[in-house]
Amino acid sequence: MKNIKFIFVALFASLTFVACDSDDDTDDVMPPTEPTFTGTYVQEDIMGRPGITTVFGGTDMVKNNFNTSVVSARESFQPIFESTLEAYHDVYGTALGVELDYEANILGLDAPTFTTVLAQFDALQVAPEGETIYFNPTTGLALTGRKLSDDVIDVSLTLMFGGNDGARFDGTGGTPQLTSDGVDSGSRTYSQGFPYLNAPNS
């Protein structure tokens, strides 16, 4: 076994030395080539909000189809998303022993409109002339992007279960807590400059 290891090391060393060239001669250097974009390219995923299809897609096939679709061709997903949204309310209603239907949310979006927004406008948003925010309760501005400090899970749950005042199922008055995951940002603070991240733990 030791002989095999020695032969391997010797062979590797010889290859290493053979590959090295101390000659300054550049005759053998290949000139840089321009990139080529020939061939067939296939979209693997979208740059949007990953949680949308995770929460509303249902089956793996729907999720995969959504992730490989283009924004302008997503109207077929809206009924699936709406059905899933209503199904979540059915499940919680059954658990509570009451009839529980989706109620227009704090943005004033009923189920068809809300799920249309989710399906057809799930793309990276930029607000060049305005605030970049996931949701601002003061201005009502929503989905123009996100800040690192935005609690996107709580906002998403509120849009799904909060009703028109955002407090429909917020854990008060005997209601279940469906508008928050109970996790806040803790002691994190984010810098104002790139990369805008919280300082690492020491």
Rank of each mutant, 00 (worst) to 15 (best):
L157W: 06
Q192I: 05
Y196I: 04
V98H: 01
S202P: 15
G193F: 11
T172R: 13
E99W: 11
G97H: 05
L143P: 03
D45F: 09
S14G: 10
L143A: 11
H89I: 03
M47E: 13
G108F: 02
C20Y: 13
I133Y: 02
T179H: 07
L143R: 12
V155S: 00
E131W: 02
H89V: 02
I7K: 02
F56E: 02
T16V: 09
E103P: 03
T84Y: 01
P35L: 00
N64M: 15
E103I: 07
Y190E: 01
Q78G: 07
L15M: 08
T33V: 11
T54N: 13
D24V: 00
L197W: 00
F161S: 03
G140P: 06
H89F: 14
G162Y: 13
V117H: 15
Q120P: 05
E75G: 12
D165P: 07
P79K: 12
N164M: 10
G140W: 01
Y196H: 05
T94Q: 15
I153K: 13
T33Q: 13
D122M: 04
F114N: 10
T84C: 06
P200T: 07
G162K: 02
P32C: 00
Y102G: 00
Q43Y: 04
P79M: 12
G162H: 11
M47C: 15
V117C: 12
M47V: 12
R188I: 04
L15I: 04
F114R: 14
A119P: 04
Q192V: 08
G51L: 07
A10L: 05
G51E: 15
I7Y: 12
A123E: 14
E99Q: 10
T139L: 00
G193R: 00
G48Y: 09
P128M: 03
E82D: 06
N65F: 08
G93N: 06
R74Y: 11
D110E: 06
D150V: 08
L11F: 15
T139V: 10
L148H: 15
P112M: 11
F56L: 14
T172M: 06
E82P: 14
I106V: 14
P50D: 13
D27Y: 12
V62I: 00
Q177M: 08
T53E: 14
F6H: 10
N198W: 00
I106S: 04
G93M: 10
G58C: 09
A104L: 14
N164D: 15
V62A: 03
N3L: 08
T53D: 14
L11A: 10
N64S: 15
A104G: 01
A199Q: 11
T94C: 00
V42H: 01
S149T: 14
G97Y: 03
L100G: 00
F17Y: 11
T16Y: 02
T68D: 08
P35T: 01
D23G: 07
K63W: 04
T38A: 05
L178G: 02
S69P: 08
I46L: 14
R188F: 02
